[in-house]
């Protein structure tokens, strides 16, 4: 990436925005299937960048290409470029461990290890550096406070993480990711297994977290995208159909496919 600040043209309106991740001509093939088709887009720093689209449109594949978590999958071929920290992380030498530390990921359903709450929080970070007992306590407290879980678990940090409710488990997973001090948070439908109240808690959390992190959120929930996104990217059949700011995207969509999808969630681009 030539510069972190790029002149962006989204939905026809120019604006200055600091780019965190720049994707250029990204193609992903799985065997003979062309999953992502020549995608070029920028994710902006300290914003909630929301990718929406119907099932099978390639949202998760795009997300998983950013931290290269699909690497090693048989028959998978990726071309193009993904720039992060002024470096093309797809081509050339990339330290994948450092990359995944910098670009943290939260998955669809919470995956809590059969360990204590404290051990879960520090699980990732302690693989990267040796921690003293007080550092472990500090990191745990800080990250659990960041996800608003601290008041609920401060007296039982040694209890199993799996004893928490699903909503608490998802926040614990976010805390575990934050503990590795990432710059970007990739969130793959993090509220799809949660009830509406807990979903709102996670959404509020994202609103607060974006002040410190760049968030890339995949969701098939249009209402959620409307509530919390700053930038929206609409994907269908592996292609980027339209993107723009929240206001522009939802109020004045340009493409027919977008209008159709926003109206009744049908995708006519196939």
């Amino acid at each position: 990436m030539e510069t972190n600040t790029a002149r962006k043209i989204n939905a026809g309106i120019e604006e200055e925005a600091e780019v965190s991740i720049k994707i250029s001509n990204l193609n992903v093939f799985f065997g003979v299937n062309h999953i992502l088709k020549d995608l070029s887009l920028d994710f902006q720093k300290n914003k909630v960048n929301c990718i929406i689209g119907p099932s099978g449109s390639g949202k998760s594949t795009l997300l998983r290409s950013i931290n290269r978590i699909n690497d090693g999958t048989e028959k998978l071929k990726v071309t193009g470029a993904v720039h992060f920290n002024e470096k093309d992380i797809l081509n050339g030498v990339t330290n994948l461990t450092q990359l995944r530390k910098d670009i943290g990921m939260v998955f669809q359903s919470p995956c809590v290890f059969p360990k204590s709450i404290l051990e879960n929080v520090i699980f990732g970070i302690q693989q990267h550096k040796k921690l003293t007992v007080s550092e472990k306590q500090d990191i745990t407290e800080e990250t659990l406070k960041a996800v608003s879980l601290w008041p609920e678990v401060m007296d039982r940090l040694k209890d199993s993480g799996q004893s928490l409710s699903i909503g608490q488990q998802q926040r614990l997973c976010i805390a575990r990711t934050l503990a590795t001090a990432p710059k970007v948070l990739l969130m793959d439908e993090p509220t799809s297994s949660l009830d509406p109240v807990t979903t709102r808690v996670i959404e509020n959390l994202m609103e607060r977290l974006k002040k410190r992190y760049t968030i890339v959120l995949v969701t098939h929930n249009i209402a959620q995208a409307k509530r919390i996104s700053d930038q929206v990217f609409f994907m269908c059949n592996g292609q980027l159909i339209e993107s723009g700011t929240n206001d522009m995207f939802f109020n004045t969509p340009k493409k027919e496919q977008t209008k159709s999808y926003l109206k009744d969630e049908t995708c006519v681009c196939r």
Binding site: T97, G104, F107, F123, Q127, C173, T177
Partner: peptide, 27 residues
């Protein structure tokens, strides 16, 4: 062991050997 434990560990930056040693074997 569900695939998500491997993916979560990978996402946290663990090397393949660490995933086996620190995630899968303890589970």
């Amino acid at each position: 062991i569900p695939q998500q434990y491997r993916e979560t560990s990978k996402g946290l930056g663990l090397y393949p050997f660490e995933i086996i040693q620190k995630t899968l074997v303890p589970i």
